[in-house]
Design a protein around this nucleic acid. Structure first.
Length: 476
RNA sequence: CGGGCUGUAGCGCAGUGGUUAGCGCGCUCGGUUCGGGACCGAGAGGCCGACAGUUCAAAUCUGUCCAGCCCGACCA
């Protein structure tokens, strides 16, 4: 018997840790707060990265790479930025056996060093827009870490763009937000709310921060991607100016945006179950687990049959053939389920006799016998069904756990109980936001885009006229 | 950074002063099995978190330290 996964209903946090460790996505590193992303976890990140990279290129961005180490003085140039990040900086003070003239910080994000370079590269409106992305690691010294969701070092992409006008920068900020939303929904099968962050949740140095927020199975929200309109804050701090068409001199307008390996955590918490991972076919490193069922007597025939089937399927899908003769079929079934492989195919002597194979879908565990000749087409449509099914199940879950609440007592009860997304009126005052956080632990996740507050809504906290509809939840 | 808990085999644990420190899973070898985590037999594997004390005798008692986990505070 393998180790058991703690059921979600018993202890959701422990379930998450069990799934990550047992499915071998990651392991704790010998450095506090750090994790090792194991081959399976990394394969999943690679699938995400591959797809996102295409989406960034399609929207005109190019990849580049900037240094890991940043002179400490660079961070100080933008007041809010340094204030926001200084508690979580790792600083290099010694190198080459000597104390450094100026300490170097390990990047918590790269705005400062990138804008120091943009100053060199941008002179004219003809140099704009400048659309650069980098895939990199960053370090933020966190007090409390969780595998994939918050670790001291993590992998991400950070886009940094420069524009001639405020309007263009705003368009870019929203364009990327929509790229993230599309990626989350179409590839991760995770429905997300896209919206703007309140002042208190804003990125240090941004004018406006937008985010996508997903609802996990424990009804806590997870921020899955952010896109910032930086206005002219960094251009001013780093003196990045350009000559306009009209001959004037202006500071450029900036954006930055990122998603991280936290997406792997989001994926796990959105879909997986007590048997292990459940992965959407669009991102699953392995789409089909082919399990031949044989004894010593018929081993050759069954493995031959399964081998041919695997070869056929590999024309269109990634297939893992579980052909070793040391572990039992039951073991292989459990292993395929733990790994989240979307479709399992069982082929044994009984199937060979009947000219069929048995398809098993990971999300519902339903077993579907199909004629052997139709395997390819049935697998393909089943993968599509699973992808759509996961999204719709997650969407239905979000709907069930989203409530319109305008009464504060009801709000408190909601957050003390199961929780979820509360759509409530908000007067816009940070004091109400802080009071709610203090009393209920719930924060404003986003002010959803495209929803004007109706005249009759009141602030859930103080009862004044609502300026916004805010989505509140407890979050990761 | 505060409060609590835990450090004994790869993992999970038992062992509260007295020979050679055990159990389950995993691992190695051999054999029988194989349609939902198979079984039998034989093996390998431990400076009992570190340091210092108490004692004839310490995994066990005392102190200090270190590490990890949980709960808070903190966190784009």
């Amino acid at each position: 018997m393998a180790e058991q996964i703690t059921p979600r209903a018993k202890d959701y946090s422990q379930w998450y840790i069990d799934v990550v460790l047992q499915s071998r996505l990651a392991d704790y590193a010998p450095v506090k707060g750090c994790m090792v992303i194991r081959p399976r976890g990394y394969a999943l990140w690679e699938k995400m990265r591959e797809r996102l990279d295409v989406m960034f290129k399609e929207t005109g961005h190019q990849n580049a790479y900037f240094p890991l180490l940043i002179p400490e003085s660079f961070l100080r140039k933008e007041a809010e930025h340094v204030e926001g990040f200084s508690p979580e900086l790792a600083v290099v003070t010694h190198a080459g056996g000597e104390k450094l003239e100026e300490p170097l910080v390990v990047r918590p994000t790269s705005e400062t060093i990138i804008w120091a370079m943009y100053k060199k590269w941008i002179q004219s409106w003809r140099d704009l827009p400048l659309l650069i992305n980098q895939w990199a690691n960053v370090v933020r010294w966190e007090k409390r870490t969780r595998l994939f969701l918050r670790t001291t070092e993590f992998l991400w992409q950070e886009g940094h763009t420069a524009h001639a006008t405020a309007e263009e920068a705003q368009e870019e900020t929203l364009r990327i937000l929509m790229v993230y939303k599309k990626f989350a929904e179409e590839y991760m099968a995770l429905p997300v709310l896209a919206g703007i962050k309140s002042e208190s949740e804003k990125f240090a140095g941004a004018v406006r921060t937008y985010a996508i927020e997903g609802l996990m199975q424990d009804r806590k929200a997870l921020q899955a991607g952010t896109s910032h309109n930086l206005g002219q804050n960094f251009a001013k701090a780093f003196e990045v100016t350009f000559q306009t068409k009209e001959g004037g001199l202006d500071h450029v307008w900036a954006t930055s945006w990122g998603v991280s390996t936290r997406l792997v955590g989001a994926l796990i918490m959105a879909h997986s179950d007590d048997r292990g991972l459940v992965l959407p076919p669009a991102l699953a490193p392995t789409q089909v687990a082919l399990v031949p069922i044989f004894t010593n007597k018929n081993k050759t025939e069954v493995l031959g049959y399964a081998g041919k089937l695997a070869a056929r399927l590999r024309a269109a899908h990634t297939v893992e053939l579980f052909d070793d003769d040391q572990s039992s079929p039951g073991w292989k079934f459990a292993e395929a389920e733990l790994s989240g492989i979307p479709v399992r195919i069982e082929v044994g002597p009984r199937d060979m006799e009947k000219g069929q194979v048995v398809l098993v879908r990971r999300d519902t565990l339903e077993k579907i016998p199909v004629p052997e000749k139709e395997t390819e087409s049935r697998v393909k449509s089943l993968l599509d069904d699973i992808q759509a099914g996961l999204f719709h199940r997650a969407l239905a879950f979000r709907k069930e756990n989203t409530r319109r609440i305008d009464d504060y007592e009801e709000f408190r009860g909601f957050m003390e109980g199961d929780g979820g997304f509360a759509e409530s009126g908000w007067c816009g005052d940070a004091a109400c936001e802080a009071k709610i956080k203090d009393q209920t632990k719930a924060t404003i996740r986003v002010l959803p885009l495209g929803r004007e507050p109706p005249e009759d809504r009141r602030c859930v906290c103080c009862g004044e006229q609502a300026k916004e509809i805010a989505v509140f939840a407890k979050s990761y």
